[in-house]
């Protein structure tokens, strides 16, 4: 019952899922069966999941191939479309900041890392570049820090310098 524009993607993702199922099955086969194990064994459930995923993936592939052959649907939005590329680009940029936060937090500490994250994300999503971004981001980071550390008593990444 998939929408037509999704058909090509279904084919692609079906093939990827088949690969995931195979990989998971191979990894499940490497699990050690201990003497404490039962008849189902440590591999039983993962194997079942691998077969199930494989089956569903094949079903999806077959379904999309049938639709493609029978109806020859028009291609959906493609990556060549500049608007699509822009949207994915925006997402990748934000993702990069989030990853940067994870990498920086243990070094420069929570407050600074969160400030940078907020400031960068605000700028990236189109706020006017202005010096007030930094103090506003810092204020946000401090509020979060106060709620978690002061109010709830949860420690946040301390960093090497602070």
């Amino acid at each position: 019952m998939t929408e037509r524009t999704h058909t090509r993607r279904d084919l692609v993702s079906g093939i990827v899922m088949l690969g995931v199922a195979g990989l998971y099955w191979i990894e499940a086969g490497k699990l050690e069966i201990s003497f404490l194990d039962d008849e189902v064994t440590v591999r039983g459930f993962p194997n079942l999941l691998a077969y199930a995923l494989g089956l569903f993936a094949i079903a999806l592939i077959v379904q999309s191939v049938i639709v493609l052959v029978r109806h020859r649907p028009p291609a959906g939005e493609s990556l060549a479309d500049p608007e699509t590329r822009r949207r994915h680009g925006m997402a990748i940029g934000l993702l990069a900041f989030a990853v940067g936060y994870v990498l920086l937090a243990p070094i420069i500490g929570y407050v600074l890392a969160a400030t940078l994250l907020i400031a960068a994300a605000v700028w990236w999503q189109g706020a006017r570049l202005h010096w007030t971004i930094i103090p506003a981001a810092l204020a946000g980071a401090i509020v979060l820090w106060a709620v978690f550390v002061r109010l709830l008593g949860i420690q946040l990444p301390p960093g090497l310098w602070f």
């Binding site: 002061r150 109010l151 709830l152 008593g153 949860i154 420690q155």
Partner: peptide, 11 residues
């Protein structure tokens, strides 16, 4: 979760 057992003073 981990938590400091010491009561934060303000609360």
């Amino acid at each position: 979760l981990s938590t400091l057992a010491l009561v934060p003073a303000g609360l």
